[in-house]
Design a protein around this nucleic acid. Structure first.
Length: 606
DNA sequence: TTGAAGTTGACAACGGGGAC
DNA sequence: GTCCCCGTTGTCAACTTCAA
């Protein structure tokens, strides 16, 4: 139940954090903000609201205030509601909206700070541009061009606030486009190199051990994109042989035969190490027997031994094609990404040594190497004809007469891959383990909250167990296993009590995730007895009070102008509720809107 | 080759409506 | 009034394609 004080906190959080809220951008950023806000409310009021509930509550009030507004202008769509009456005054200035003139405001602030920053800028001008320049999000990472005024920061200095993240909403005529990019640990090597070169060139000192965001101008973005495109065009090469034969003659790899006897023969000990971790990055292309290629993938694998390397490739191919395969079902070859022809076999240790030498050569030349896995289904059919006969027949029938096939037909056990069988077994175990007699369905129960385990969730959980990131008892660290997905009907009466007990037992903030992995340790809760004190807002000085209203109402200076006159009349915040129109007239607060805003704001401290 | 526009996918915001 | 669900719309970021 959303009581007044909870709603008050929700509105205040949203209002005070409006600028931050809109600076978060798209994706999951705003979701995280609502989750955080719900967490704060939960911490204070010992509730179990989810981020979604907080979001919906807030937007519900917005909806009611809109209806109220329509009602006031006698629009037939309007409706007077309790929420509308209560919050309309506060919501009518649409404080939750994205600040439209954010960029201009920042420019105004810059003007104010002009005198302060002039001296600093003078120092910057005198400083050599290659000396320890900290990267700012408002500059192009690739060429140090200002994303706002377009000046070259290598030779010029501008007054733009380059700490503001460039977005569509703050584009200028000079630089109409900007491109936000993320540095990811697993991004293409060529892209990494591109970024690291710029980092070295401009001495940004970026931390490449973790993800970070940067910006490109159009030119640098195009360059950056084309680096990866070159790699992708290689992977899209069509087979030159029209007979659908593999470019390289299929050679069956028998890892045990070639490697087993020389188990774990370390290549790196014989050759120069490739890098510190014996890892190599390359593009893997899987070619089916019909000559068609699956999408290429840039991979980084451990290449300390041939066996390890081949095993990783095999596992990856299994993931791509969705079933387990035998070593006899494919052959490997390698070639330079830019070279034509079939390449060289990669079927035994000597090939692997050659492969590593070639890799090092190409790496020094900043070229890439491609590993091609040619599938060889014919061998599979001969070896496993009985095992896969039914599966193949089914797939043939599906191709020939797909219309007759029932879409939801139950798959036969014999048609399942070993992986699917294991998943199925785990799902059965999970169903048993988490069967809820109350709901008569499998439910994951934590903190007294029941999350119905759908087929999708069960399969996801089973996959996580296979990955080693979950067990039968511990749920996966996936957002789908969050309480926010649990329906109201699944919230049992003991939920609040249990959450309360747990929060008393452990000094952590109860948040919306039920999975133990999601329990983030926060600052300890204040003693329960202090909650009433916390919920009462401290009364600010009249100066603080008016400044806050001014900030909330658009920072136009409408309210701070009254600071002096309020002080002259010795009016404090607690007096405001008693002021009438005459008093406001004396104080010079002429507009009705200002008066109502001031009164409404003062009510918070009653 | 380069700069810019167009396309696509993901997600939050929003609005309508039903159940309680 | 509250909560929830569902469909639509708007925004953002990443990627692709076009044109000079």
């Amino acid at each position: 139940m959303w009581t007044d004080d909870k709603v008050r906190m929700l509105i205040d959080e949203r209002k005070e954090g409006n600028a931050h809220y809109h600076s978060l951008g798209g994706g999951n950023c705003k979701r995280a903000w609502w989750i955080s806000t719900a967490g704060k409310i939960n911490q204070r009021f010992k509730t179990v609201y989810t981020g979604r509930q907080a979001s919906e509550k807030f937007h519900g009030i917005v909806k009611d205030c809109r209806s109220m507004e329509l009602s006031i202008i006698k629009d037939p769509r309007g409706k007077i509601t309790r929420n509308g009456e209560r919050y309309y005054l506060e919501f009518r200035n649409k404080f939750w909206k994205k600040p439209r003139l954010q960029f201009q405001r920042s420019q105004t602030q810059l003007q104010r700070q002009r005198s302060q920053t002039q001296q600093q800028q003078q120092r910057d001008q005198n400083r050599h541009f290659f000396s320890m320049v900290k990267y700012e999000i408002g500059t192009c990472y690739g060429c140090r061009k200002c994303i706002y005024c377009g000046c070259d920061l290598n030779t010029e200095v501008c007054k733009c606030d380059k700490t503001i993240k460039p977005k569509l909403s703050n584009r200028t005529k000079v630089v109409p486009h900007s491109f936000s990019q993320n540095f990811e640990l697993n991004m293409l090597l060529c892209k990494k190199t591109f970024i690291q070169e710029r980092d070295t060139l401009y001495s940004y000192n970026s931390n490449f051990k973790k993800r970070f965001i940067f910006t490109f101008c159009s030119t640098c973005n195009s360059q950056f994109q084309r680096i990866s495109n070159k790699t992708k065009t290689i992977t899209k090469e069509k087979p030159t042989n029209s007979n659908n034969e593999s470019i390289i003659s299929p050679v069956i790899i028998d890892v045990d035969k070639f490697v087993g006897s020389q188990d774990m023969c370390s290549i790196s000990s014989e050759n120069e190490s490739i890098d510190q971790h014996d890892e190599i990055s390359f593009t893997l292309i899987v070619k089916k027997v019909d000559g068609k290629q699956l999408p290429g993938k840039w991979l980084t694998f451990d290449a300390s031994t041939f066996k390890k390397f081949v095993t990783q490739i095999q596992k990856y191919i299994e993931t791509m094609i969705g079933e387990e395969i035998d070593q006899a079902e494919y052959s490997l070859a390698f070639k330079s990404a830019k070279s034509n022809g079939g390449g060289l076999e990669l079927s035994e240790l000597k090939d692997f040594e050659k492969f590593l030498i070639e890799y090092k050569k190409l790496f020094k030349m900043k070229k890439e190497i491609v590993v091609i896995a040619n599938m060889n289904r014919k061998i599979v059919k001969k070896k496993k004809r009985k095992q896969v006969e039914e599966e193949i027949l089914e797939s043939d029938e599906e191709e020939n007469d797909s219309k007759k096939k029932k879409v939801n037909s139950i798959p036969k056990v014999s048609g399942l891959t070993p992986h699917q069988k294991v998943i199925g077994k785990l799902v059965s175990e999970l169903r048993e383990q988490w069967h809820c007699s109350q709901d008569n369905v499998p439910c994951y129960v934590a903190l007294g909250i029941h999350l119905k385990l759908t087929a999708k969730l069960l399969a996801m959980w089973a996959e996580s167990i296979m990955d080693g990131t979950a067990t039968i008892e511990i749920a996966p660290t996936h957002p789908d296993f969050a309480v926010q997905h649990a329906t109201k009907n699944n919230l049992h009466s003991s939920a609040t009590l249990m959450a309360s007990q747990i929060s008393q037992m452990y000094p952590i903030q109860p948040i919306q995730y039920i999975s133990p992995q999601y329990c983030m340790v926060r600052e300890p809760l204040a003693p329960v007895s202090n909650f009433s004190a916390i919920s009462q807002l401290p009364i600010p000085s009249i100066e603080e009070f008016l400044k806050k209203i001014d900030k909330d109402e658009g920072d136009n200076g409408d309210f701070v102008q009254f600071i002096d006159v309020f002080n002259e009349q010795n009016i404090s915040v607690k007096h405001i509720k008693d002021l009438d129109d005459n008093d406001f007239q004396i104080l010079g607060v002429k507009t009705i809107g200002w008066r109502k805003t001031i009164k409404a704001a003062a009510k918070r401290y009653e």
